[in-house]
Design a binder for these strands. Structure first.
Length: 293
DNA sequence: AGCTGGACCTGGACGC
DNA sequence: TGCGTCCAGGTCCAGC
């Protein structure tokens, strides 16, 4: 599920049951997700109080009382659900209704807040890692991350600067987490449509020869802001029945203008174009060639 | 150095 | 029904 708005929605769902609560039990039900779990993964979690739950780009970060940080990424198909523990179960055991994809419930936490938290990830592109807080800046997974798209430092000037000299497409540049961290395939397509910019445009065209941001860059940053904020307000997007931690569906998918709308009429007033799908860098791009230039 | 394409996984939708 | 193909919200890494 997870681009920035979905990860932020997950964070808000987990925060009430995680923050200030102790991890009574932690369990990893397989040796690896995308990477092997660290040998001391469970040991470093058990008994720790979660002092805060934050987000950086598409990562969730749980601060622990020990000074460690639990880093979590949802990959393509990761999700969390919050369930009530079964009081009949032994204290260290997780008993809960099994669904058809329970086989992909890979990580479980029992919190002192009275919640069990289950991480499910069929494709296992997600991962979790415990890092000492004072070593965060050396963490390779976080190293080259660009600015938060909703943060103060991300503006047209900064976007133009980081796209300077880039010969790749605008689509590919915006998906590059070093340029801006948190966008994915959906919100890049949506932001480009809302700013009427072609996904095939060369990224370097966001700046003038003097290195000043063009109006295009300003429009694009504005569109990124609005589409992300609107999506967060809607609880993210629910594709293929992906759910929030509470089991509720986000509803921003109903607001997609182009993503997964190939063949539909463009919604831009007086455009009259049709949404097309092309492949760029191996991934689908949805856009309207008529109003995106 | 920057960029592209393949690899990593599983499951759902579709066509025959 | 079953089998094959294609596609999916991400990102790392090799190779050009």
């Amino acid at each position: 599920m997870p681009e920035l708005p979905e990860v932020e929605t997950v964070r808000r769902g987990l925060q009430p049951v995680m923050e200030g609560a102790k991890i009574l039990v932690a369990e990893a039900r397989r040796p690896d997700l995308r990477f092997p779990f660290q040998p001391d993964f469970v040991a470093r979690l058990k008994g720790q109080v979660v002092t805060g739950l934050g987000r950086r780009a598409k990562y969730l970060m749980a601060d622990l009382g020990s000074g460690d940080v639990l880093l979590m990424h949802l990959g393509m198909s990761g999700s969390f659900r919050v369930i009530k523990p079964d009081n009949e179960a032994a204290p260290g055991e997780f008993h809960y209704p099994k669904g058809k994809d329970s086989a992909h419930d890979h990580v479980l936490f029992r919190m002192s807040s009275g919640a069990d938290i289950v991480f499910n990830d069929p494709r296992r592109f997600g991962y979790m890692k415990v890092i000492a807080r004072n070593a965060l800046e050396d963490e390779p997974l976080l190293r080259g991350l660009g600015p938060e798209p909703l943060g103060n430092e991300f503006d047209a000037a900064m976007l133009a600067r980081s796209c300077e000299g880039k010969t790749t497409s605008l689509k590919a540049a915006l998906l590059d987490q070093r340029v801006v961290a948190g966008l994915g395939n959906i919100y890049v397509c949506e932001a480009l449509h809302r700013s009427h910019l072609s996904p095939r445009r060369i990224a370097a065209t966001l700046s003038t020869k003097k290195g000043e941001p063009t109006d295009h860059a300003k429009r694009l940053v504005g569109a990124i802001h609005t589409v992300l904020n609107d999506a967060i307000k809607a609880g993210g997007s629910s594709l293929r029945d992906h759910r929030q931690t509470s089991g509720e569906l986000g509803y921003f998918q109903h607001s997609f203008k182009v993503y997964d709308r190939e063949g539909e009429k463009c919604t831009t007033p007086r455009c009259g174009g049709t949404v097309k799908r092309i492949t760029q860098n191996g991934r689908s791009t949805f856009w309207c060639p008529k109003c995106q230039k």
